[in-house]
Simulated scan of single mutants.
Amino acid sequence: MSFAAWTAERININTADAAALEQGLTNVGPVKAQAIVTYRRQHGPFLRVEDLTRVKGIGTATVERNRQRMTVGTRQAPTAAPSRQDVPAPVPRR
């Protein structure tokens, strides 16, 4: 794999296992990688890469150093509000 192809592929911090995090991120060893996975299991997915600083041992310097290597993936768009036709009309009270 060429360097350009490798850098184009970002690591999804919400789905990557500890080995992938350790291998793909700078200054993230086995302990920090496992801490990321454990935090994610306990608290749910990261909404932004900056949320990674909530993990013990991960600071803003680590996030900034790896910003271009990480992603949180795509989020599902919220479901659309029901159309006016789908909402029943109120029944007048007597």
Rank of each mutant, 00 (worst) to 15 (best):
R40N: 04
R40V: 03
R41M: 13
R41P: 07
R41N: 14
Q42G: 09
Q42F: 09
Q42E: 07
H43A: 08
P45Q: 14
P45D: 13
F46K: 06
L47P: 02
L47I: 04
L47K: 13
R48Q: 08
R48V: 02
R48W: 04
V49K: 03
V49E: 02
E50Q: 03
E50D: 02
E50A: 05
D51S: 01
T53D: 03
T53R: 00
T53A: 01
T53S: 02
T53N: 01
R54Y: 09
R54K: 15
R54C: 11
R54V: 07
V55Q: 00
V55W: 00
V55P: 00
V55I: 00
G57H: 08
G57D: 02
I58G: 00
I58H: 00
G59Y: 02
A61P: 04
A61T: 11
A61L: 07
A61C: 11
T62M: 07
E64W: 06
E64V: 09
R65E: 12
N66Q: 03
R67N: 14
R67A: 05
Q68W: 07
Q68A: 13
Q68C: 08
Q68P: 02
R69L: 01
M70I: 04
T71A: 05
V72Q: 04
G73S: 06
G73M: 05
T74K: 07
T74V: 05
R75F: 03
R75V: 05
A77K: 13
A77M: 10
P78N: 09
A81C: 15
A81T: 15
A81D: 13
S83W: 14
S83K: 15
S83M: 15
R84V: 05
R84A: 11
Q85E: 12
Q85S: 14
Q85M: 13
D86E: 15
P88Y: 12
P88D: 15
P88M: 14
A89V: 06
P90Q: 15
V91Y: 10
V91W: 13
V91R: 12
P92C: 08
